[in-house]
Write a protein that binds this DNA or RNA. Structure first.
Length: 945
RNA sequence: CGGCACGUAGCUCAACGGUUGAGAGCAUCCGGCUGAUAACCGGACGACGGCGGUUCAACUCCUCCCGUGCCGACCA
């Protein structure tokens, strides 16, 4: 016999597995994904679940622009976990991803890149470039989403530029027109008078501009407190855009501000003037012209001035004083000149008070005939000084200076822009009680978290009519026909459906490429004047209307996913965005919400909880992070946090998650390492009674894990899935059960009942945990599935399988109660072993011998009945129970009734299993072995192993 | 400025309004093992954003403040 080796070591069943400790996800994941594609796993899943109850998560389309970022990652991973977990619960849960392809950002970029050339190009040509750009990003983002392991019908996504989808949009529009919701109305928009075009917010460049700043007294007609005396009274307004005064139809005051009736002597004319302005601004305003003689006549709150009337300074028109919350005393007089045709807030106030929206300015910025006669035909900026002069002449002007402030300019021609009211298309939120009916539907939807309901409720409850027209190129045209005779716009359900069918056949480009005669529906006649000559109007639809119509094109029509959807899942910003545009168009066209459940998540923020932004430099690239750490690590990271609130992500966090991933991976490596020779083994051949008590306990614990995890998935609380599984792996398994099992797995006969019993548990854990983790770490789960020792009857992919079910045979509440006590005893024992270790008396627990006892009869009995079990649980060589407590024994910290005495065992160490046993040395054949090991060795020899 | 949320150890999660000690896991530090080894085991350290209030009792309810996020308003 050779002496240089450890001959007995070779007789142990040490772990062996192909499952590598090093995950190398970066290389492994793409291979797994490639195979999924080759085998059309998504198609297989569809087939396997066909006929099952459907639960469809409808994808909100991300904007096709730029690389995906952490926000996309969070959103798509959460969706994927929902879809995969629904699938594993046995539902049919198809996932059709989509992209929002139209819209300003793409058009803006394309036009900007074209430079001056853009002006020479047709709509159709520009649209072609936009389409190319959008599709480029769709391809890129698709690859990036796929790399995250998101499962779905990536070869057939829905694109808002798809003719079928465009047809769906018009289908919804036609329904809404039929329902009487759609109308035209004036609305102020940014307008460049040089380029004669509408401008979006993104096309404005703010820079300093000198404008007149004038203080004007408008004569009051009524509503001045009688005790202030005769006056005549005025209201003093301030404006930096005198040219908008012709459109003045109100003066706004703040309801809570104090206003004074002021009598002052004009230093230039010596005249006594009575005027009203904010109390807080009297000194400042009077100081502008060094007015020294002024006195307060009386005071009122703004709200008391509501409905008081004044006469326009140079137009024969009486208008009211109104209230508005945005009035401040930072500048001006606290009384705001209000021209709904020339400002957004003024417009809103105008809606509230039903004021007319005047806009006596044409596309070139010249006054129209609606303006006072002497202004007609003049450019608005040129008119500024004339109006000032006129006010001065008539004595209405109090003061006039030049004011420099930030003012919007056209991004193209760099000239100052104006606000100009133009006819726009609207959806009337209060027509046919759309608002009320939507609120009812909101109430019937399940909002997660629950506060989402109140949030969207308030938004819908308070929102104005929805302006759905835009003066752009890159979108779906509103197929309105303008009557050349009377200028009426022809847009009916019938005409829109005509164009719906056309767009479906040829795409929306047809609107731009075909002459109007070819587009015209047969027999189109102007309903007003009977005219038959039309022109194409140029507006497109708001992109929110497009994406908000996805319930038609994607759920109801071509993708046939079923209406309504089970779930919409987006960031909480979509309460105002997609959730709202979807439910409004859906209620307007179908009468009900397009979703049953709306799940929202917070935003990805940095380590400190602050938002990620490129300028701050605290962003993390989702693409790079995936390349570096692997999709499963990032998926686990996303799943580990409570997404109801904002989600903090950092480089360090990802690193920590890699460690957690490794721990899970190592747990599986241990399981598989001890299952290598279990492959093909029939678990049914394990007689249940051969399971040890600790095995039954472990499976009972696992039952509880299965129940908790299934419940967490059903409630979409994935962080609970992660926490539960991770802590089970760490606490119950790694540091206890798996540690305890080593002796049995390594040292017992390979095929003996004791080892087989342990392997049965390990196999069950492996199978169950793999399934439970599959929605979160699909790649790793698939890798584990392939190495599974389970029989041939299981599906080829874990993603075709279902979640495990708990086995009630292993539930035993009374036992779990006893085990809690036993584990507490174990903790006390371990504490004593630690003392021996610090004192260098022992190294491993196996070198220890322990005596336990208690004065408490119940505890005493517990110890006596479970002596062997406790020995196993503590992995010590020997436990003795009873007798009197030695003087140097310790009292339990958690269990004061318990005393523990630990010492170094006096027995010799078995060379094979390292336990210290009294019988070691007694055998002649194997003097260095314990009895158990000698038995195992002889069995091996008998079996010819 | 307004609406809606959130704020427990360095990190991620716990804790029916109530047992003197607010639990875990990870990270960190210390130690053990060397037959899960770029592993494994044990121990220690460590927190309720702040001031008030309600209550016999508050992490848990309320006011305010501070911080953070989303949405909106704003620049006449």
């Amino acid at each position: 016999m050779s002496t240089n080796a450890k001959p007995y070591k070779e007789t142990l069943n040490l772990p062996v597995t192909r499952f590598e400790m090093k995950a190398n996800l970066t290389a492994r994941e793409p291979k797994i994904q490639a195979r999924w594609r080759e085998e059309d796993l998504y198609g297989q899943i569809r087939q396997a679940r066909s006929g099952c109850e459907a639960k469809v998560l409808h994808d909100g389309p991300p904007y096709a622009n730029g690389e995906i970022h952490m926000g996309h990652l969070l959103n798509k991973v959460l969706k994927d976990i929902v879809v995969r977990s629904l699938t594993m619960q046995g539902y049919d849960s198809p996932y059709v991803p989509g992209w929002d392809c139209h819209g300003l950002p793409i058009e803006h970029k394309v036009v900007k890149d074209l430079g001056a050339k853009a002006a020479t190009m047709s709509h159709a040509e520009i649209r072609a470039l936009c389409q190319k750009d959008a599709l480029k990003w769709v391809d890129l983002q698709r690859d990036q989403f796929r790399r995250l392991g998101v499962s779905g019908d990536w070869d057939n996504p829905y694109l808002t530029l798809d003719p079928r989808y465009e047809a769906g949009i018009l289908d919804v529009l036609a329904d809404l027109i039929e329902g009487g919701y759609v109308f035209r109305q004036l609305k102020p928009i940014h307008w460049c008078i040089t380029d004669r075009t509408a401008l979006a917010e993104a096309e404005l460049e703010y820079k300093d501009e000198s404008t007149p700043s004038i203080y004007v007294n408008f004569p009051m007609v009524s509503g001045v407190p009688a005790e202030w005396g005769d006056g005549p009274w005025h209201a003093m307004i301030w404006t930096t855009t005198p040219w908008t005064l012709p459109a003045n139809v109100a003066i706004a005051a703040h309801p809570d501000l104090e206003y004074v009736g002021l009598r002052y002597v004009d230093p230039a004319t010596g005249a006594t003037v009575h005027t009203i302005l904010a109390a807080a601004l009297v000194a400042k305003v009077m100081g502008l012209r060094q007015v020294t003689q002024f006195e307060e006549v009386g005071r009122v709150r703004g709200r008391e001035l509501e409905h008081a009337e004044y006469r326009h300074a140079f137009i024969d028109r009486v208008s009211p004083i109104v209230l508005a919350g945005y009035v401040t005393v930072e500048d001006g007089t606290g009384l705001v000149h209000t021209a709904p045709g020339h400002g957004t807030e003024d417009y809103q106030t105008g809606r509230t008070y039903q004021l007319p929206t005047l806009s006596p300015v044409d596309a070139s910025g010249r006054y129209t005939t609606e303006a006072p006669e002497h202004l007609v035909g003049q450019g608005v900026f040129q008119a500024n000084p004339k109006i000032v002069a006129m006010l001065k002449e008539s004595g209405h002007l109090f003061h006039d200076v030049t004011f420099v402030h930030s003012y919007p300019h056209c991004w193209r021609c760099k000239k100052p822009v104006i606000f100009r009211a133009t006819e726009q298309w609207f959806i009337g939120v209060d027509r046919n009680d759309l608002r009320g009916r939507t609120l009812k539907q909101i109430d019937a939807v399940r909002w997660l978290p629950a506060w989402g309901r109140a949030r969207i409720d308030a938004m819908v409850g308070g929102r104005p009519d929805w302006c759905i027209s835009r003066q752009r190129s890159w979108g779906v045209p509103i197929p309105a026909l303008g009557c050349e005779t009377c200028q009426t716009q022809l847009l009916t359900a019938e005409t829109v459906r005509h164009f719906r069918d056309l767009f479906r056949r040829e795409g929306a480009d047809a609107w731009y490429t075909k002459p109007v005669d070819e587009l015209l529906p047969a027999g189109a006649v102007c309903p007003k004047c009977g005219g038959t000559t039309f022109r194409k109007e140029g507006d497109i639809l708001d992109v929110w209307f497009e994406s908000g119509s996805s319930h038609r094109g994607v759920l109801s029509k071509d993708f046939n996913l079923g209406y309504p959807a089970f779930m919409y899942l987006e960031g909480s910003d979509q309460h105002r965005g997609w959730f709202q545009s979807s439910i409004l168009t859906a209620v307007g066209s179908t009468g009900r919400a397009p979703f049953e459940t709306v799940l929202t998540h917070g935003f990805v923020v940095d380590e400190k909880g602050e938002k990620m932004s490129k300028s701050v430099g605290n962003t993390i690239s989702a693409v790079k992070a995936t390349e570096q750490y692997g999709a499963d690590v990032l998926r686990l990271y996303a799943a580990s946090m409570d997404y109801a609130d904002d989600v903090r992500m950092s480089e360090r966090g990802i690193k920590e998650m890699s460690e957690a991933y490794r721990k899970i991976r190592n747990t599986f490596r241990y399981l598989l390492g001890n299952l290598e020779d279990y492959a093909g083994f029939d678990p049914n051949s394990v007689a249940p009674e051969t399971l040890h008590a600790i095995d039954r306990w472990a499976l009972g614990q696992f039952n509880s894990v299965i129940r908790d995890v299934r419940a967490a998935y059903e409630e979409f609380e994935f962080y609970r899935v992660y926490q539960r599984i991770y802590q089970f792996c760490s606490v119950e398994l790694s540091s206890f059960y798996l540690d305890v099992l080593k002796d049995r797995l390594y040292a017992e006969s390979p095929k003996g009942p004791d080892r087989r019993a342990a392997q049965f548990v390990l196999a069950r854990l492996h199978d169950g945990l793999t399934r439970l983790l599959a929605p979160i770490i699909p790649h790793t789960a698939e890798e584990l599935w392939e190495l599974s020792p389970s029989g041939a009857s299981r599906p080829a992919s874990v993603h075709l399988a279902e979640f495990p079910q708990p086995d009630p045979a292993f539930d035993d509440e009374a036992r779990d109660h006893v085990w809690q006590r036993l584990l507490a005893v174990r903790t006390e024992v371990l504490r004593e072993l630690e003392k021996l270790r610090s004192a260098k008396v022992i190294g491993s627990a196996q070198e220890a011998s322990v005596r336990l006892g208690s004065d408490d009869p119940e505890m005493s009995s517990l110890l006596e009945h479970n002596r062997d079990l406790l020995t196993t649980m503590a992995i010590v060589s020997e436990i003795e129970v009873g007798g009197s407590a030695p003087p140097d024994s310790a009292r339990g910290q958690e269990l004061p009734a318990l005393w523990v005495h630990a010492s170094r065992s006096s027995h010799a160490k078995c060379e094979r299993c390292w336990n210290l046993r009294p019988e070691v040395g007694r055998s002649e054949a194997h003097p260095t072995l314990c009895a158990r090991c000698e038995r195992v060795i002889s069995e091996r020899n008998t079996n010819g192993a």
